[in-house]
């Protein structure tokens, strides 16, 4: 395998000029004379390197710039500034050789013909990507088996449920065995069972084909199941790039202390926010910097049977990062 990174991004920025006007008739008439525009900086100065075969979670609130980055990496959008190389190609050139090696799966890709069985659309995909017949059959069987959609590919797409259609779309997106997968919310709108199946499928595809995966999802379960490394983007800037476990350490403003005392109904509200209390077991939330003195105080003032310190759940950390408008410096890998 090549040692060259699968994705190499330097100083990537994207700005859009969007029209702007107030509501109402007066503003509409004014717009006839003078058109006002505003520049939106969707992505600013992003650096990112992803090794071949790596699965990276790409996190950010709505409008943070995740999808814009994915679109630039896939060649859909031209960067305003910066350099992008994916598998050694410049995506914006949209060379056929590059497009044959990657896929971008978005919730609304709609590559399947609505009134025909998915198997018919797959034949067209074979021709588009020039997949040799034998390899096409083998890959199709493999993907159909992995996603357990068997006979469904012979039913008109319009008769499939959302989850079934998403799986059929996923098969269609991978028939050419792409080396890089950009997955934009692949489990959006699916039930929990279907989400799990898609997750295990992506993991298996990555294992079998050593594919590089860049995944965005609002479901932390997707990220936790698939990605050791996460990249957080906020207001277009890279906020964090590192291990998922380190994300909590970096951004959690609180620690959760679970303590078991030999006394029931002890009042620990003076130590921090009591999250739960059941018998002698109490869960406290304290500011991160207060955790060591609080633990020392608890140990010295009570008979502690057991004590654990945890970062808050990753969902809480992410929510806090997005809602607080944190603008700390990116953490380089």
């Amino acid at each position: 395998m090549s040692t060259e990174p699968a994705i190499d991004v330097r100083g990537l920025s994207k700005s859009f000029v969007v029209p702007e006007r107030e509501s109402g008739l007066r503003a509409a008439l004014g717009g006839l004379v003078r058109r006002r525009t505003r520049t939106v900086h969707a992505v600013r100065d992003v650096d990112l390197t992803v090794a071949r075969g790596e699965v990276v979670g790409f996190l950010g609130a709505n409008g943070a710039g995740k999808t814009t980055v994915l679109k630039m990496l896939s060649g859909l959008l031209h960067p305003t500034t910066g350099d992008v190389a994916v598998l050694g190609h410049v995506p914006a050139r949209r060379e056929r050789a590059y497009l044959r090696r990657m896929t971008l799966v978005m919730g609304n890709r709609h590559q399947l013909q609505w009134d025909l069985p998915a198997s018919d659309s797959y034949e067209l995909t074979r021709a588009i990507y020039q997949v040799p017949e034998a390899r096409f059959r083998r890959t199709r069987e493999e993907l159909v088996e992995l996603l357990e959609i068997g006979e469904l590919i012979r039913k008109p797409v319009r008769t499939l449920s959302l989850g079934e259609r998403m799986k059929a779309e996923l098969v269609g997106s991978l028939l050419h065995q792409p080396e890089v997968l950009f997955l934009d919310e692949p489990t959006l709108g699916l039930d929990i069972t279907m989400q799990k199946r898609i997750r295990s499928f992506v993991a298996e595809y990555n294992r079998r084909h050593e594919a590089t995966v860049l995944l965005t999802s609002h479901y932390m379960a997707d990220i936790q199941a698939l990605c050791k490394r996460v990249v957080v983007i906020h207001h277009g800037r890279l906020l964090f790039d590192g291990d998922l476990s380190a994300l909590g350490e970096e951004f959690a403003a609180h620690k959760e202390i679970e303590v078991t005392l030999d006394e029931a109904d002890a009042d620990l509200s003076g130590y921090g926010e009591v999250r739960s209390a059941e018998g002698g077991r109490v869960r406290l939330r304290v500011p991160r910097e207060n955790a060591p003195p609080t633990i020392a105080k608890l140990l010295s003032e009570h008979n502690v049977l057991d004590l654990t310190v945890e970062a808050p759940p990753i969902e809480d950390v992410i929510e806090q990062v997005f809602s607080s408008g944190t603008s700390g410096a990116a953490v380089p890998r």
């Binding site: 190389a85 598998l87 050694g88 190609h89 410049v90 060379e95 056929r96 050789a97 590059y98 013909q113 025909l116 018919d120 659309s121 034949e123 067209l124 074979r126 021709a127 588009i128 020039q130």
Partner: peptide, 25 residues
């Protein structure tokens, strides 16, 4: 950067295959 040039004959053959499949569909 990678710059792969397809042979014209291969390109025409690929396009013909695409036209047949898309037309049939």
């Amino acid at each position: 950067m990678t710059a792969v040039r397809e042979r014209p004959v291969a390109r025409i053959r690929a396009l013909a295959d695409f036209y047949v499949q898309a037309g049939k569909l």
